[in-house]
Write a protein that binds this DNA or RNA. Structure first.
Length: 107
DNA sequence: GACTTGACTAGAC
DNA sequence: AGTCTAGCCAAGT
């Protein structure tokens, strides 16, 4: 995915990337961080998602192994909502985790 | 400018 | 397969 990184804060760049996630695909925080230039900023990515706009496909962003992390954040509907939305897009799950083999975006 | 806060991650147990 | 730990870095106070 070709993304134009602006001079904005990391948050803005994160949002740009998340917006570019295609239908039925998922991406890890680490991948986003990598696209931003450093593989160690996964945390900041997650933090950015904390303030994610509603138009963002935040549910397409999952943990390193496709694990749902929203529950840690105390999301009330949390993992249930995210999993439901992903399943609506045809994303298959293995236990509590997304089937990364099929749905993770290759860089 | 130092200190705290995370929707993270990889590795160890 | 689940839990714990240390390392990492931008933003907010």
């Amino acid at each position: 995915m070709a993304i134009k990184l602006k001079q904005n804060s990391f948050f803005e760049n994160v949002y740009l990337i998340v917006r570019d996630i295609p239908f039925g695909q998922v991406v890890t925080y680490g991948q986003i961080a990598n696209l931003l230039g450093s593989p160690h900023m996964a945390r900041q990515v997650g933090w950015a998602m904390n303030d994610c706009p509603l138009d963002l496909a935040w549910y397409r962003v999952v943990g390193a192994r496709g694990r749902i992390l929203t529950y840690s954040f105390g999301y009330e509907k949390g993992d249930c909502t995210q999993r439901y939305l992903l399943e609506q897009e045809g994303v298959s799950f293995i236990g509590k985790m997304v089937d990364m083999k099929k749905h993770q975006i290759s860089l």
